[in-house]
């Protein structure tokens, strides 16, 4: 199903921002909030994994119902999960379209990767402390 993905800050994201290798950060940054009706249509429940695809990439996240979101709009806090799907084009402004990413979402049995594994996917070498 197609959605518009938007991003922003959450208090949890801010709280865990200085420990990005931890499961708590991963859980918040890979949490995708959706309208409950959209979740029904997707046949997913809270905490289920979904594969989100956009801009030629995909990333696994876990769903969370959020009745405050209108249908068709999903929210992910800013961070490395959302940015897998962000296009680097800036329309000559320096600023990517972080707030308006067209994505498609489908249920998956995969689990969200830790941040270090996400970075490995794009050429990094995980550092485990």
């Amino acid at each position: 199903m197609d959605f518009l993905m938007t991003t922003g800050r959450t208090i949890r994201q801010g709280s865990y921002v200085e420990r990005k290798n931890t499961p708590s950060y991963r859980d918040e940054a890979s949490c995708i909030r959706m309208n409950p009706v959209d979740m029904l249509e997707l046949l997913v429940e809270e905490g289920d994994a979904v594969r989100v695809t956009g801009n030629g990439s995909s990333v696994v996240m876990r769903t969370k119902p959020d009745p405050m979101l209108p249908r068709g709009l999903v929210f992910v806090c800013l961070g490395p999960y959302a940015n897998v799907l962000a296009s680097p084009w800036t329309h000559g402004t320096g600023m990517p379209d972080f707030k308006t990413m067209p994505v498609s979402i489908e249920p998956t049995t995969d689990a969200p990767l830790p941040v270090s594994a996400l970075m490995k996917e794009c050429g990094g070498v995980p550092y485990e402390d």
Binding site: S57, P80, N83, A86, P96, G124
Partner: peptide, 17 residues
Amino acid sequence: SDPGAHFPRACAGHLAS
């Protein structure tokens, strides 16, 4: 700062290279 987390993946990929 943390561009790895806050830049689009293509940019993070170049930082790794």
